[in-house]
């Protein structure tokens, strides 16, 4: 399964949303479920799934799904 597919599986499950509520431009705060607590839960779930820890710069700079997937790809490829 591609990183992108795994990512969407996790974000849908972690935030409790439908897949069509999320696209590559979506970011924290854009939908009610992706609030600060939802964001932390998502980051933890992604770290657990992909086996790495986001750096502080990555966490602060990440603003969209697209950027988040790019960060994951840098870590795991």
């Amino acid at each position: 399964m591609s990183i992108e597919k795994i990512f969407y599986r996790i974000i849908v499950s972690s935030l409790g949303v439908e897949r069509d509520q999320i696209n590559e431009e979506t970011g924290p705060g854009d939908i009610p479920q992706w609030d600060s607590l939802g964001h932390q839960g998502l980051l933890t779930a992604l770290e657990k799934e992909f086996g790495f820890v986001f750096t502080i710069d990555e966490v602060l700079d990440m603003e969209t799904v697209e950027e988040l997937i790019e960060i994951i790809e840098r870590h795991v490829t």
Partner: peptide, 23 residues
């Protein structure tokens, strides 16, 4: 269970405030 939880949470997201939806 995972699929069930996802669907129930999605329903919760429609009718409850986000912080009320069971994690």
């Amino acid at each position: 269970e995972a699929e069930f939880a996802r669907k129930v949470r999605a329903h919760g997201g429609e009718v409850l405030e986000p912080y009320m939806v069971p994690e």
